[in-house]
Amino acid sequence: MDISTIIFIILATIIVVSSVSVLMTPNPIYAAFSLAITMVTMGFLYFSLDADFIAGVQLIVYAGAVMVLFVMVLMLFDLEKETEAYSKGTFSVFLKLMCGLFLTGAVALSVRQSIKGLSDVAKVATPAEQVETIKLLAGRLFTQYVFAFEALGVLLLVIAIGVVAVARSRGGTHARH
């Protein structure tokens, strides 16, 4: 077993355990913490896949901005009541387990079907190619995908205005005074 395999196994274990704990913990704050661990570990995995720049963006955008947003909104709510509302009945646990097993089977089957025809020949990039990656990325982003890039800029502008409008809206037909 070489070192990259060991690193992959460690990272994959951390990712699976922390994402399961997002699903299982009753307290949303712990779920947010587990999600942050998942994001950071996913960044390391990108790093091991020679996607250095993506790994950096993952750490800044996800583990930084998005998680701060989540935790900030969580602080507005009454967490004590949330933890109590987490259902623990035997029947519902059984139902959840069956749902999970069914879904896992469906996803595993579809992955199995889709990877049948793939030949996985690993082409490892040389160090010189890795230095060029960011340049290559920028070239593609600002030539081939420039329309999508501009459209994303417009989308972000719309979102920034829309979020403020939604969050501070009051009144309407369902208002409770």
Binding site: S4, I15, V20, L23, T38, V107, A108, L118
Partner: peptide, 21 residues
Amino acid sequence: AAVTLNHYLALSAIVFTIGML
């Protein structure tokens, strides 16, 4: 023992399933 594309796809499928659950 080398890590192949299938390993990453399997990990991705697991995480996707957990997220959907």
